[in-house]
Design a protein around this nucleic acid. Sequence first.
DNA 1: GAGTGGTCTAGACCACCAA
DNA 2: TGGTGGTCTAGACCACTCC
Lengths: 227, 227
Amino acid sequence: MTAWETIREELLRRIRARDWLPGATIPGEEALAIEFGVARATMNRALRDLADAGVLERRRKAGTRVALHPARRARFDIPVIRLEVEAGGKVHGLRLLHQALEPVPADIAFRLRLPADCRFWHLQTLHLADSAPLMVEDRWLSPHVLPDPAPDFAKVSVNEWLVGNVPLDTGSIDFTAANATEAEAALLGTTPGAALFVVERMTWTDEQAVTHVRLAYAPGYRVHTLL
Amino acid sequence: MTAWETIREELLRRIRARDWLPGATIPGEEALAIEFGVARATMNRALRDLADAGVLERRRKAGTRVALHPARRARFDIPVIRLEVEAGGKVHGLRLLHQALEPVPADIAFRLRLPADCRFWHLQTLHLADSAPLMVEDRWLSPHVLPDPAPDFAKVSVNEWLVGNVPLDTGSIDFTAANATEAEAALLGTTPGAALFVVERMTWTDEQAVTHVRLAYAPGYRVHTLL
DNA sequence: GAGTGGTCTAGACCACCAA
DNA sequence: TGGTGGTCTAGACCACTCC
């Protein structure tokens, strides 16, 4: 355990032991550095780490306070389907179900900040784990990012091709739930109406929409994060 | 923009422009520090930030490499229901539906690492936004953490009482989807079988299980994160 | 063993913002 | 406008791990 980690644990202990109450101002960086016998930079590292985690709130002049609602932030690993499947000791499979240039539906065009009447590649793919259906991917992909002989998405997952070939910029991820349509249920081997965990990702590069993808997972799937 | 942030952006630009390919080793900290004309600590800050974000992978002796699957990690704010409701300009309401000491169900006891035949407080609460049902909370709470005159959970949300009064330690969050039971549907004003977004949190303090809570949100709810 | 990143120091200047 | 956190430097030693 390094010095700044040890200090961070001690600061956390004081907060959890309620030596420092939520909302209270704690001593300044310099005072704490002297108390713990370290350089200010080391104390800064510990304090900044707790501020990043949402445990402390820091402002110049105002000082450092204990957050009123601690542990408000967490990290999670964005699921990468192939790695997830292979981590479970299974083989990842793909089945490209549909690929065509089609007008982007209005709601998706709006969320991608696209003008009306855009045509994107519409791709539907079934992902398998050891031949068991795991997830249905419904993607709208800008034709402007594809090279002239387009890649064969029956062999390479669109996602993996993108991360390897298109410089991504900004993006967002949403998590929600949806009832399985009849088509989804048939593909995933479940019943229509079953609750599916849905991930929606959008990405832009250089202000240009690249892709919108909706991943609907078979029942039982869950995202797990430690605090 | 500070120096280390400027450097981070330039490093990101090189990665996205494919000057540095995924998997490739990039120059060492010291070499880059010289190139950018900054101290090694400043360069370290930029490189460490990208490694935290999952863009770079760093190992002693082996050097720094561009990650094969960039942007694999993201942060999100753990939803705090009352704040979320109030951020939407609405009033957060509570209705305590059930409170009793009951044996913990086997599956939850197992996940909380509890011995068999434990009795916890079982609390069911309906959360409202401007009197519209928003979320059903089903919680198992260790009786050991409550003071003798127990708090009135009809007035204070259990969650808010906990973060204010119990030193929390480790925990986990899961996201999944579930079909609404008849009881849930009635409470949330939807139909049985509707797909609900479900958050499950568990917390321990000092190796002792504190609580297991399952939050089932009304249809339409989503968690949103920027990348 | 040797090269790389990880940490730490003592000091300095700066940016922000509450008083 | 002064106090606080944010950043930066030049240098040092250490810890890990690949060779």
